[in-house]
């Protein structure tokens, strides 16, 4: 099963660290990521640039609008996503509980990946039928 782990952190926490503290944290986190990779648990993952680099695309008054932001209102910001391969939900929880980032104040939201295969198959069926007509 795949689990999407959304990692949230407090930018000010990291800013207030000394360089050596920060390095220690990164070393520890990357070591653990390697461990996950080595054991086949790390299916994919990316770190995100700060929230002030974000842009948003949405629909407004009948056309696409593009704005800067959103600027985070909360203290916790999304810092990265990790796609975890685990046997079940408790295994995923266990793997993320050991992630050193947790100890440094980050939090992980763990969400089971949704299986859309059936929806996609139904959609393909609909599209085939409409082409046939």
């Amino acid at each position: 099963m795949k689990y999407i782990c959304l990692g949230y952190y407090r930018p000010e926490n990291v800013e207030n660290m000394s360089e050596s503290e920060r390095n220690a944290m990164f070393d520890e986190c990357f070591t653990y990521d390697d461990e996950l990779r080595k054991n086949g648990h790390f299916a994919a993952g990316e770190a995100l640039q700060p929230a002030n680099t974000a842009m948003t695309v949405y629909w407004k008054n009948g056309k696409v609008a593009v704005t800067d932001g959103p600027y985070a209102e909360t203290k916790e910001q999304l810092g990265g996503i990790l796609v975890l391969e685990a046997r079940d939900l408790n295994h995923a929880i266990q793997l993320m509980s050991q992630h050193p980032a947790v100890k440094y104040g980050s939090l992980f939201e763990i969400r089971p990946a949704a299986d859309l295969n059936e929806m996609i198959q139904q959609s393909e069926q609909r599209r085939r039928t409409s082409v046939a007509r």
């Binding site: 099963m1 046997r87 079940d88 939900l89 408790n90 295994h91 089971p112």
Partner: peptide
């Protein structure tokens, strides 16, 4: 059994 299998069998959420 996995957490999800047990939850499904007992009709409770995996969470």
């Amino acid at each position: 059994l996995t957490t999800e299998e047990i939850a499904k069998a007992f009709l409770i959420t995996p969470r």
